[in-house]
Design a protein around this nucleic acid. Structure first.
Lengths: 337, 337
DNA sequence: CTGAAAGCGCTAACAA
DNA sequence: TTGTTAGCGCTTTCAG
């Protein structure tokens, strides 16, 4: 990293400031432009981000804090955000908070603030968003992704989980199912709550009572999906369909189903939130709610970039994206009398 | 990010340089130490990484270029590397090269060099490592992870794929299998080549001829696993066992197996390289080669850190980690006459 | 349109 | 041990 703006100036017999101006899109005489371009090419010059950042207190870094990276949902999001941010000239600094623990998030936020980022994207659970405080104090824009309570007054973009779940439960109902179980996520998670709400609301709207035994409290991890099915299958009055609230739990669900030899969809119909490899890998292929991940990544990045550029006109934004139901073969059509 | 070293100096009535020295672990009078500590606490001071970096031409950034992030293998590695690097005070800048295309790697390396990193970790395929040239020219240390040809004279850490494959094929042979197929990765990949070699060598060592029809050329992606099984099953003389060279292809393999209704292990035994959710999710659970991912991440990070600190004593290193075979239920014991 | 010069926050050599 | 000072590479007034 030896060649600096100084060298270019010397090579071109122009002033440093002229080069600088040109580098930043300023106007210079046509002839000089060519000379500068040539020198840059010749010397293989490129600006030092450090110095630049020091000067205009910009770091060109964006932090991304999220967890559960070992599932497809998270890694897809990561990939999309990364490429989009790089395209826009930002580095993505990724911090993994595997279990989405709020205290860990807070620590990471602190770390990022102290070490300097221009903005950050955060996914974490828990209602209070005190973990963001430090970023706010430092006037660093934050966009919350996915897990955002309605009480929070910060930019956030999320998927309308309630709506997606409602739709897929409705599909079950229309197929003739009445005994529908739900393996939900943990109550600290807002998305989990939304999904549960979608289920509850659909059942209510169609006038079906909720069977408490059909409401399984999971934790978004595969083990709880496994246990969920085991529990449901011990019931005297087994459900004919089950809604699984996320991908990881679905893995556990499938495991239990193989183990118990449950026939899908003859004995049990399955629908799930999240749509990945597994959904098409198993037989029958799963009917599932697909989240618009690419759109989400785009939206988050664009919003954050606007904030970093000082555009707070419409702050705070709460953007809700629409998921899509993918209908496959895991739901049995019941011919009710 | 308002409070600077200057403020601390003013608050403590000490010189800027004294604060600086203290911040960098230098010795100061005991009393002053307390005063400084107090001031730092009070003002909530923390050093500006930019300025620091500009001064001693360090960025405290490390780049990680890798692909295939949407599988567990890669995301686990990412997670481990991230946390380890952060622990050591480095930012991890992640660049996703989904399909491990050498040209893309080259572009990313260029990007990182231009924007300044202290070191980088790279996984890519292809024999020539010209994509690293720019990093070398800039004297930025690079550690190659996984895909490293023996002809390359750069630090690299990889898993002994040949050995792992050999061992698991041997297991098959000892279980009485003779008709063993292999769904391999693409030939540009060194790990894929190694795995194939392990297969070939084991067969040879035990004196079994290779059936060309049993050698399937895959590409490490799930679709090729799917097609591989379809092809094998069309054969008149079907194999009794198959080795699948990576996780993603295993997903496709399982899909085909369900579709064709193949009974595992009665009709076909399966062993695979890579061991993740899928391996224990399906029935029967898969016998597989597990890569020591955490160890790999640790090794890579530690090596890179040493290089970044100027320790080139043992350069270049070629570290080969030992994988482990996990024996489960997907291999049928054949009682040969 | 171009150039001279100040200064972003920090470190390190040197002086005290 | 502590303080003074130059300067890392760049941007940005302000004159020319």
């Amino acid at each position: 990293m030896g060649v600096t703006i100084k060298d270019v100036a010397r090579e071109t017999n122009l002033a440093i400031s002229t080069i600088s101006k040109y580098m930043n899109g300023g106007k210079v005489r046509k002839k000089n432009q060519e000379v500068i371009e040539a020198a840059i090419r010749k010397l293989n010059y490129n600006p030092n981000g450090m110095a630049r950042g020091l000067r205009n207190s910009r770091t060109y870094r964006v932090g991304l804090i999220m967890g559960n990276n070992s599932n497809s949902h998270a890694s897809m999001l990561l990939k999309e955000i990364e490429s989009r941010m790089r395209e826009k000239g930002y580095f993505l600094i990724f911090l993994d908070n595997e279990y989405c623990i709020p205290e860990v998030t807070e620590e990471y936020v602190k770390f990022l603030v102290e070490n300097g980022v221009d903005g950050m994207i955060v996914t974490t659970i828990g209602e209070q968003i005190d973990y963001i405080r430090r970023a706010r104090e430092a006037h660093i824009p934050v966009v919350i992704m996915e897990e955002c309570y309605t009480t929070v007054d910060t930019d956030c973009v999320q998927v309308n989980c309630t709506g997606g779940t409602y739709e897929i439960i409705e599909h079950l109902i229309k197929a003739g199912h009445r005994k529908i179980a739900a393996i939900n996520g943990m109550s600290e998670s807002h998305t989990a709550l939304e999904r549960k709400t979608g289920y509850l609301r659909a059942m209510e709207d169609y006038g079906f009572p909720i069977n408490k035994n059909y409401l399984i409290e999971g934790d978004y991890r595969s083990g709880s999906g496994y246990l969920g099915i085991k529990k449901l299958w011990q019931l005297k009055d087994r459900p004919t369909a089950v809604f699984v609230a996320n991908y990881n739990m679905c893995i556990g669900v499938m495991e239990a189903i193989y183990e118990l030899g449950i026939k899908v969809p003859e004995e049990l119909s399955i629908v799930s939130f999240d749509d990945f490899e597994l959904s098409v890998m198993v037989r029958p292929k799963l009917t599932a709610v697909r989240q618009p991940l690419i759109e989400m990544a785009e939206t988050v990045c664009d919003l954050l970039i606007r904030r970093m550029n000082g555009d707070y006109e419409d702050y705070p934004q709460r953007i809700r994206l629409k998921p899509e139901c993918i209908y496959r073969d895991s739901v049995l059509q019941i011919h009710t009398p």
